[in-house]
């Protein structure tokens, strides 16, 4: 167990835990079902830095005592980590390979995708779900996405990612159905890139 959390400086999470979790879950579901679609989290609270609202809401809705969590700043007393441990009760782990969920707040220096859990042949769903905080999310121009959940194709642009990230993502298509699912967040917006989506451009 990590050291105790400094509770005096914590801010509240969802004002209505049940309803807000359900709405957030629905938003993530929508985003995952329609890769590249930008979905808005219609909620307001003040998560501590470096968490943005969408990342914080996703964590509150999806993490609990039984999910393992990795993030770059593993110091137990880091405001974001302490906040998540308090609200979700999740265990923060050192090794991204064992994480159910990973939060990346500095995508320019993030680990390679194969440093996370890609699942195994029997249980591909055991893979890590990545929540990546991006500089900007837009659906106007950029990458061309095709695959399940997209009728013809959609366009999608994320700022702040390196070329290496996209190369990693490309090489994951060879190991399907293994691989990681990714949720990009920016302020109160999110978009998903599940492993089934083909990225071009």
């Amino acid at each position: 167990m990590l050291s105790s959390i400094d509770l005096n400086k914590l801010t509240p999470g969802f004002s209505d835990p049940v309803q807000d979790s359900r709405q957030t879950f629905r938003a993530v579901l929508d985003a995952m079902a329609h890769p590249g679609r930008i979905v808005i989290i219609d909620n307001f609270f003040s998560p501590p830095p470096p968490l943005n609202l969408a990342s914080a809401a996703i964590c509150l809705a999806l993490l609990d005592f039984e999910t393992t969590f990795w993030t770059e700043d593993l110091k137990a007393k880091a405001p974001g980590t302490g906040w998540l441990r308090f609200h979700c009760g999740c265990s923060v782990i050192q090794n991204p390979l064992e994480a159910d969920f990973a939060l990346i707040t500095s995508p320019d220096i993030m680990p390679a995708l194969n440093e996370f859990n890609i699942g195994n042949d029997e249980n591909p769903e055991f893979s890590t779900t990545l929540i990546i905080q991006a500089g900007r999310l837009s659906a106007t121009k950029g990458k061309r996405l095709t695959g399940p959940g997209i009728e013809t194709f959609s366009t999608f642009n994320v700022e702040g990612l390196t070329n290496r990230f996209w190369q990693d993502r490309q090489s994951q298509s060879a190991i399907f159905p293994l691989g990681v699912d990714i949720i990009f967040t920016c302020e109160n917006r999110l978009a998903a890139l599940p492993r089934t989506t083909k990225v071009e451009g």
Binding site: L2, I5, L7, S91
Partner: peptide
């Protein structure tokens, strides 16, 4: 029970 946030 030991709550994660209290540690005792």
């Amino acid at each position: 029970f030991v709550p994660e946030e209290l540690g005792f």
